[in-house]
Amino acid sequence: MEVSANTPAVVTGGASGLGAATARALAAKGAKVAIFDMNAEKGEALAAELGGVFCKVNVTSDEEVDAAFAKAREAHGQERILVNCAGIGNAIKTASRSKEDGSIKHFPISAFDFVIQVNLIGTFRCIAKSAAGMLTLDPLDENGERGAIVNTASVAGEDGQIGQAAYSASKAGVIGMTLPIARDLMNEGIRVNTILPGIFDTPLLAAAPQNVRDALAASVPFPKRLGVPSEYAKLAMCMIETGYFNGEDVRLDGAIRMAPR
């Protein structure tokens, strides 16, 4: 699908980091971008910069997601592009012993569930609702293409570290559902792909001490640096614009394979 002037697009988690870079890349091609995010201050500012629309939305809520799609479609029309970047993480061991007093505790189930609700079910919620809307569109070309969806997983979905049980499970779920969803939508001309980012220089890492950032960069085989959001955006654009790109999960990680810690 060629991204051109006035192509409607939605980017979840679009107010910062990977999502913001992708929103900018889409807007640079002329797309009309709707930014879904919880951060109204950053989201409104970026939407104004790009000539798009901001929708405050919690992807765990059916009602908020429905309202956000309705607002985006009223402003720009039915989206042909969905990029899912909304996500959270935590670091808690499954069970652990206190070094202070030897007491034992386990991963709070509510904390595990919340990560799954945001990263996995929230992603699927947006995919399902967007795809249903795309089905109303006329095909763009002789192949019958109607739309393209890009999801964000993580290298942790394949080699998660200590404390990443919930995060890894959620991202492995995104990886695992990519091909079935692509197959679900194959007769409707909607392509689905997923990016597995490695260690990227996002707002989450911006607050880390420099020595931590340096150590993370040094752990990457090549190039020995953190990934930058514009690199994620380039791959997302490639997935969107390359018509034969479908049902794939692609690592973008400088060849890193995560160690246990």
Score class of each variant (00 low, 15 high):
residue 183 R to V: 09
residue 221 P to E: 01
residue 229 P to W: 00
residue 220 V to D: 09
residue 229 P to D: 01
residue 246 N to S: 06
residue 129 K to H: 07
residue 160 G to P: 05
residue 156 A to L: 11
residue 216 L to S: 09
residue 86 A to I: 00
residue 108 P to S: 13
residue 181 I to W: 13
residue 227 G to T: 03
residue 90 N to S: 13
residue 215 A to T: 11
residue 29 K to R: 15
residue 149 I to A: 05
residue 46 L to Q: 00
residue 241 E to K: 02
residue 124 F to W: 13
residue 161 Q to N: 06
residue 53 V to E: 07
residue 155 V to H: 10
residue 97 R to M: 12
residue 155 V to M: 12
residue 119 N to R: 03
residue 254 G to R: 02
residue 42 K to P: 01
residue 186 M to W: 12
residue 186 M to G: 01
residue 195 I to W: 11
residue 126 C to N: 14
residue 93 K to N: 12
residue 251 R to Q: 07
residue 44 E to C: 04
residue 70 A to C: 05
residue 187 N to M: 13
residue 113 D to G: 04
residue 37 D to I: 01
residue 243 G to E: 14
residue 135 L to K: 15
residue 84 N to Q: 08
residue 60 T to V: 14
residue 20 A to Y: 02
residue 228 V to K: 14
residue 116 I to Y: 03
residue 25 A to H: 01
residue 91 A to C: 14
residue 225 R to K: 12
residue 87 G to E: 06
residue 154 S to Y: 06
residue 79 E to N: 12
residue 104 I to W: 10
residue 159 D to I: 06
residue 45 A to P: 00
residue 231 E to K: 03
residue 150 V to A: 03
residue 117 Q to V: 05
residue 99 K to A: 12
residue 91 A to G: 10
residue 177 M to A: 01
residue 93 K to L: 14
residue 214 D to E: 15
residue 41 E to K: 13
residue 240 I to G: 03
residue 158 E to D: 10
residue 2 E to P: 01
residue 13 G to W: 01
residue 196 L to R: 12
residue 254 G to A: 03
residue 27 A to D: 02
residue 9 A to W: 09
residue 163 G to Q: 03
residue 171 K to G: 00
residue 5 A to K: 15
residue 85 C to M: 09
residue 71 K to C: 07
residue 113 D to E: 15
residue 83 V to Q: 06
residue 252 L to T: 00
residue 48 A to R: 09
residue 177 M to F: 13
residue 243 G to D: 14
residue 18 L to Q: 08
residue 176 G to H: 11
residue 182 A to S: 11
residue 233 A to I: 01
residue 194 T to N: 06
residue 241 E to L: 02
residue 17 G to S: 03
residue 162 I to W: 10
residue 150 V to P: 05
residue 244 Y to I: 08
residue 213 R to V: 13
residue 91 A to L: 15
residue 185 L to H: 06
residue 35 I to V: 12
residue 170 S to P: 11
residue 252 L to V: 01
residue 19 G to L: 07
residue 27 A to E: 06
residue 186 M to L: 13
residue 205 L to W: 10
